[in-house]
Write a protein that binds this DNA or RNA. Structure first.
Lengths: 344, 344
DNA sequence: ACGTTTACCTACAACGTTGTAAACGCGTCG
DNA sequence: CGACGCGTTTACAACGTTGTAGGTAAACGT
């Protein structure tokens, strides 16, 4: 239509509408005191020129970008993909965009990311830490709004949204105990870890055993370094090879559990008859495995929703001294076939 | 350390180093003609102040943001999560950041996204279309570098990176035929679609049948609207309910196939003995299902890598008239248990 | 020795927006 | 009738960077 490819600016709109650029800016920013006729003229001009504000200029001037960052270990891990999905949806409802970064769960990269120049592209960051731990807490004292997810650091200097790992893991274990299982194997523990998802979930497991008067047997604990599907499979193979006797397995997340179930079935064991199984995360996948997987819904949607809301509140707030908040999402057990009562 | 929280600017660095701001700018941008001693003084000042360029200002002035967009239907679909992972990794190697948008596969949202003001935050877009079709091709004639992924539009005005859908689907079907299967069901076809992943893969299927002299039987085609796991399960339930006889199933993607396999096994059918199964995508998951899933690796890594490279070339190029490129990734069959030869 | 290139550096003006301060017109009040 | 307040609008100066054009020495060619 038009040979000129330059995007329209406030000046162009102002010229067409016969007002100053500041009036156009005011119209765009919903400044209240504008005569309706003037406003209409400006809106017409905006429509005519198909004007769009230059976001770089706006953010240079105002210091806000309208973008929030989301740092996760790896998108190819379903949990984080589904988390990212939820965060993006929630951000969209609030009119902001999400910039995703992957850390690979590597501590050095996590630390680096916190001070990367890329942070300038965002007004704040939702940060799912996997490699850092409580000793690194001071790195979180950054100059921008930061909401922490995950279980690696508690009591840090920032807002923290997370799940009830211990309670949920205890509930999961109690669920197995209620089925009459007493020899409950664990898949995905991390050697010597007391904090972090693995450490906390293992704690919940031990609490449930203790409450039921079942002795803790270290031989039942399957350790892994990562929480990929293959790690669950490997850990289960090791348990089977060790010859230890068990009638249930608590996988510290769904992915691990699905890998472990695969190995159990290969070995000719029936789920839940010989070995009952429960996972953690409530991935979409858990409802289509064979058998379908009983699991913990840790409140992922709620976590995403809350993290975005809290972050945007921080961004909007002028009160920098607002004390950090610790927010826990509700969990629930999702019962499926892998813990169904044996039909006689 | 410092009571002053304002970030350092070029002016501050210039003052400390005793040079003009332009010289500092030149140092940062690797301008060649700078005296080594001057350069060192500037670098020292940068280090002392922990100076980081203001990216908004830079992008306002230069028109570049260092960010590329990636639009996918949904991150919670494993294929797109794994694609996003690959794109982010590749972008990182090239020093750019990725901003992810979800379209939900909705045509209207896809069209809208192409002209959203958010495009200003990015230098270009990698766009995985799912709702738009060839009729919408003109919407792709946008004023910024755009690389199209997916199978919805061919011969459009932009660079296009995609997979060999027809060839790969034909190979998959031939693989089943080579096992001696003649009654091959399909899961995930889209009613009346000739283009798009579903249409193309179905075409490959028909070509393979024809080449083998096997008549096409419409009763064997399971239609779905979406490609979620539940759709695969539903389609398979419908096939079983219809009473049609089949000895193999080609799921048009892995997720569908896994859903279908679940239903087959529930119905007491053995895989691959009674029904062989092959999928498409080579998700991580395919190597841990029971049985493990034979599938097509459509070259996802290569697609991500190429898309980023081609996009960055476009961004860097001054030649706007460069003709659009059509690039096809190589595929390969990944053989696993779901098509193993019956051991008699 | 003198013009001309080369290496290095700088002043200035943009990029397009928003915050500040102030001006304008008009009705209202003392 | 002049002062004041209010609704409406505007001029101007930033925000921090890079492109342009130019300036000053030193190095070079003749």
């Amino acid at each position: 239509m038009n040979g000129d490819f330059m995007a329209a600016t406030l000046h162009d709109v102002a010229r067409i509408a016969g007002v100053s650029i500041k009036t156009v800016s005011n119209v765009i920013n919903d400044y209240p005191h504008i005569r309706p006729t003037t406003k209409q003229r400006v809106l017409d001009a905006i429509a005519e020129l198909d004007y769009r504000p230059n976001l770089s200029a706006r953010s240079l001037r105002s210091g806000r970008t309208g973008v929030i960052g989301l740092a996760v270990p790896e998108l190819s891990l379903s949990y984080f993909a589904e988390l990212a999905d939820a965060v993006i949806r929630s951000a969209e409802r609030h009119g902001v965009t999400v910039l995703i970064e992957q850390t690979g769960g590597d501590r050095a990269r996590e630390v680096e990311l916190l001070t990367s120049p890329r942070r300038q592209l965002t007004d704040g960051l939702i940060f799912s830490a996997l490699g850092m731990d409580s000793d690194d807490s001071e790195y979180l004292r950054v100059g921008y709004p930061l909401v922490l997810l995950g279980e690696r650091i508690f009591g840090g200097p920032t807002d923290h949204v997370t799940m009830r790992n211990v309670d949920a893991a205890r509930a999961a274990t109690e669920h197995l105990i209620a089925l009459g299982r007493r020899r409950i194997a664990v898949v995905g523990a991390h050697e010597g870890e007391v904090i972090g998802s693995a450490g906390l979930r293992l704690r919940g497991y031990r609490e449930a055993l203790e409450a039921a008067g079942i002795p803790f047997d270290p031989a039942l604990i399957g350790y892994t370094t990562l929480w990929h599907r293959s790690n669950g499979a490997d850990a289960m193979r090791a348990l089977l090879a060790s010859g230890v006797d068990f009638d249930a397995v608590f996988g510290l997340n769904d992915t691990l559990t699905l890998g472990a179930m695969r190995v159990l079935q290969e070995a000719g064991l029936r789920i839940p008859k010989d070995v009952a199984a429960i996972g953690f995360d409530d991935l979409d996948e858990a409802q289509y495995s064979l058998p379908t997987l009983t699991t913990i819904d840790p409140g992922r949607e709620e976590i995403a929703e809350t993290a975005v809301r809290v972050l945007l509140e921080r961004i909007a707030s002028t009160d920098l001294a607002l004390p950090p908040r610790e927010i826990l999402a509700d969990f629930r057990i999702v019962e499926r076939e892998s813990t169904a009562h044996a039909a006689a």
